[in-house]
Design a protein around this nucleic acid. Structure first.
Lengths: 224, 224
DNA sequence: TCTATGCGAAACTGAGTAGTTCCGGATCTT
DNA sequence: AAGATCCGGAACTACTCAGTTTCGCATAGA
């Protein structure tokens, strides 16, 4: 390989005239495989061979489509299926608590757990790759956060909670604490955890919840 | 390696007979260098040569003292100087808000930011190395969390807040949201952020500072 | 059927790094 | 000063992995 010139092909190639056309049918499988490996081993632990093996593809196929490992990961995160809740499919039960609880579906929890593992795998990269950071934010954290913001805003609009509630922080609360719990504390994030968060923190913070002053007699919790 | 806490005084063999005795004088420098590199590049990006260079030591010196990169990191995190607040040096201002605000010192913020960067660098490792996870929890997370728990419990004891407050989650709230903010959102975690968290979420959740109409930033004084 | 084309598999290259070894010099003890 | 020991630096080994190339096969259009 001493010479690098002499490109012998090169008429222009925009004509899929014969043979199978370039269809990129396998892309979704490869991207999904990349996300799986990412969740399991983290960015640095992930190798192109792992991704290829899991997608039952060849390494060459990966490089035909993406110029580098970094690009593949960015694409995988960016194309991640935005799960759960679009603006139009949010629960609307009439009460804030009803809406928040309705967001806790088994599928949503499971999906969220995978996203958190992916996020963990991206962590060290995110802090030094702005593009990846932006993509991860848009794909993983923003959908849920904005859903919560909408739910809270509705509660304000219908007069259920104070108009001065700290919506921005409250919308991020459950996600923040869930990530912290699963990544740092390594405890399970399940339905009970979210319910506890709603009833023990979010609703009280917004003027709805439990922690009533002990002077109240009606709520006779059998003391501590 | 023994993950038993605090190997301060070592019981290593008593043979300081001749020449310079094995003093391990450089250990703190090396461990601190390791933490710096960890915070900057993450576990996988960190190389033994970086650590050696920053500590102005030789790679051989590192391997004389620690058998592997993994052990060095675990030791570095375990020996991390527990900063800020011991049980005996907690603020005690008489009000929950006063105590919480008193926890926000410039030094504490700066120290916390470094710890978060270290935590980010450990993330992907933590999820598959239980020993590291335990050490990181004990060194980075637990001190602050237990300080918050104590402050909240005091407020309960003096009748300032409801005895049914969700202390466990509230104690983790500011940390969770700070980590999320700095690692995921990549926004600055400063004094204003913590104040907003206290006045906008924690105190309301506990029945104190209701969200006040005027948005004047000086204070949202809890009651009175 | 024939032929162009994309694909999976595997071999290969090159770079970077964990971990080792060796040596000259610095430092402490006697 | 002499002797023992540790240290920093540099060279070295062994291995892993990103990225490339090659090749035979499968498929789709003609």
């Amino acid at each position: 390989m001493t010479l690098d010139a002499i490109p012998l092909e090169e008429t222009h190639e925009e004509t899929p005239k014969l043979g199978r056309k370039r269809d990129h049918t396998r892309d979704p499988d490869i991207l999904d495989a990349a996300l799986d490996v990412l969740a399991e081993t983290g960015y640095d632990g992930m190798t192109m061979e792992m991704v290829a093996a899991r997608a039952k593809a060849g390494k060459a196929t990966l490089y035909r489509r993406w110029p580098s490992k970094g690009e593949l990961v960015i694409d995988a995160v960016a194309c991640m299926k935005r799960g759960d809740f679009d603006r139009d499919h949010l629960p609307d039960t009439g009460t804030l608590r009803g809406d928040l609880v309705a967001m806790i579906k088994p599928h949503a929890i499971e999906d969220g757990a995978r996203k958190m593992r992916i996020m963990a795998g991206l962590m060290s990269m995110i802090s030094r790759n702005p593009e990846l950071a932006e993509v991860a934010r848009a794909a993983i954290v923003e959908p849920r956060a904005s859903a919560n913001r909408i739910l809270l805003q509705r509660a304000i609009d219908r007069g259920e909670i104070s108009a001065h509630s700290d919506i921005d922080n409250l919308a991020l609360l459950s996600q923040s604490m869930a990530i912290y719990r699963v990544l740092v504390l390594q405890k399970p994030v399940n339905r009970d955890f979210f319910i506890q968060l709603i009833d023990g923190v979010v609703l009280p913070a917004v003027g709805l919840g439990r922690p009533l002053p002990p002077v109240d007699g009606s709520n006779s919790a059998p003391d501590t």
